[in-house]
């Protein structure tokens, strides 16, 4: 098989399109690059959707934590504590088995036992909790003068939030939020190691990397390939976040110094 044929056979294997059987013998570098890259589609899927949806829940939770009413504040604090205080790995396991038992009573929930929906739901809640903590800190760091100026201009309620509080919060929390986005993408590699089944061997990048490491008994090729893909993904996130950061800060005179990302996967 030429490399191009391998790409045609396996490039969309993680979605179930193409060759059914994973390569068993004569595994070449091309196989490894293609399949691990194919698995990366799942990481991107989990990361993008969880971040996109989690953002709104995070802002809502951060605001609820500021609330004077305990009815709003307490649940928000508990939500953040539960998801930040326990390992994501255990959360995945617990959620998977919870969905399995719920399936018996509520058949409508059965899609949640698949990785595509169930794991996405857990990641959504998890990133919402971590981001809520970031936005909570950012809300508290809003300069008091800004809020007083808003009052002086007669802004209140929704308009004050929309025009002053929210943009400032986003601007202050953005560097930390970018880190959170990177961690989340790294965390998506845990999905298929935590109960959620990879139906018909449709897995993510790490799933295929481990497949090759087990099959060839040589970890020195697939894991560096995986690492390379993730570094590229991370650089992409940083570039995108940098564009948004520039837009958020476009009214400010000073250009902030170079910001260095921190990497962490386990949470």
């Amino acid at each position: 098989m030429t490399c191009w044929e391998i790409v045609q056979a396996y490039a969309l294997r993680s979605l179930g399109i193409g060759e059914r059987l994973l390569p068993q013998v004569d595994i070449t570098l091309c196989h490894q690059f293609t399949l691990i890259g194919s698995g990366l589609l799942w990481n991107v899927y989990f990361g993008t959707l969880a971040l996109g949806a989690g953002f709104f829940l995070a802002v809502a939770t951060a605001l609820a934590r500021q609330s004077r009413h305990a009815v709003l504040r307490k649940p928000a604090e508990w939500f953040v504590f539960v998801f930040r205080g326990s390992p994501l790995f255990i959360q995945f396991f617990f959620a998977y088995f919870l969905f399995l038992s719920l399936r018996g009573t509520f058949p409508a929930l059965s899609p949640l036992t698949s990785a595509a929906y169930g794991a996405l739901f857990v990641l959504f809640l998890n990133t919402a909790a971590y981001s809520a903590e970031i936005f909570h800190g950012a809300l508290q760091a809003i300069p008091r003068g800004d809020l007083e100026a808003a009052d002086a201009y007669g802004l209140a309620g929704w308009r004050k939030f929309r025009r002053i509080t929210f943009p400032t919060m986003l601007r202050l929390g953005w560097p930390a939020y970018t880190n959170e986005a990177i961690f989340l993408f790294h965390a998506t590699t845990l999905v298929f190691f935590s109960g959620f089944p990879a139906a018909q061997q449709r897995g993510d990048a790490l799933y295929y990397a481990k497949f090759f490491a087990d099959r060839t008994f040589n970890p020195f090729v697939p894991y560096p390939i995986l690492a390379g893909y993730f570094i590229l993904l991370t650089l992409g996130i940083i570039a995108l976040a940098g564009l948004i950061q520039r837009r958020l800060n476009r009214h400010l005179p000073a250009v902030p110094g170079p910001w260095r990302p921190r990497f962490r996967l386990v949470r």
Partner: peptide
């Protein structure tokens, strides 16, 4: 070590050290 996902390190190091 900080630039690469930890889990990849966990899976990688154990085999690498063993071998």
């Amino acid at each position: 070590v900080r630039g690469v996902p930890d889990i990849a390190f966990f899976l990688f190091f154990v085999i690498a050290l063993d071998q």
